[in-house]
């Protein structure tokens, strides 16, 4: 599973960073950055799904 943040949707609420700091970091411009390029390690998939679900703007994409 890969993760992407739609930069035009993200408004810097930071729920993803709080939920999965291993995967997301809020940048200086208030847009979330994905820290892991390519496929996520299996053990982080559940956290990624939780971040996807919680994102207020639904700005996270999970690519199987």
């Amino acid at each position: 599973m890969k993760v992407r943040v739609k930069a035009d949707m993200c408004e810097g609420h930071g729920k993803c960073e709080k939920t999965a700091p291993e995967i997301f970091k809020l940048g200086d411009d208030d847009v979330s950055i994905v820290l892991i390029e390519g496929d996520l390690p299996k053990e982080l998939e559940e956290k990624a799904e939780r971040a996807y679900r919680l994102c207020p703007r639904q700005a996270i994409e999970l690519i199987p």
Binding site: M9, E11, H13, P56, R57, Q58
Partner: peptide
């Protein structure tokens, strides 16, 4: 407490903060 008082997604409340 993941309530939907501000909605969610495309139209999530702009003024939530």
């Amino acid at each position: 407490n993941d309530h939907l008082a501000f909605g969610i997604g495309e139209h999530f409340c702009l003024g939530a903060g």
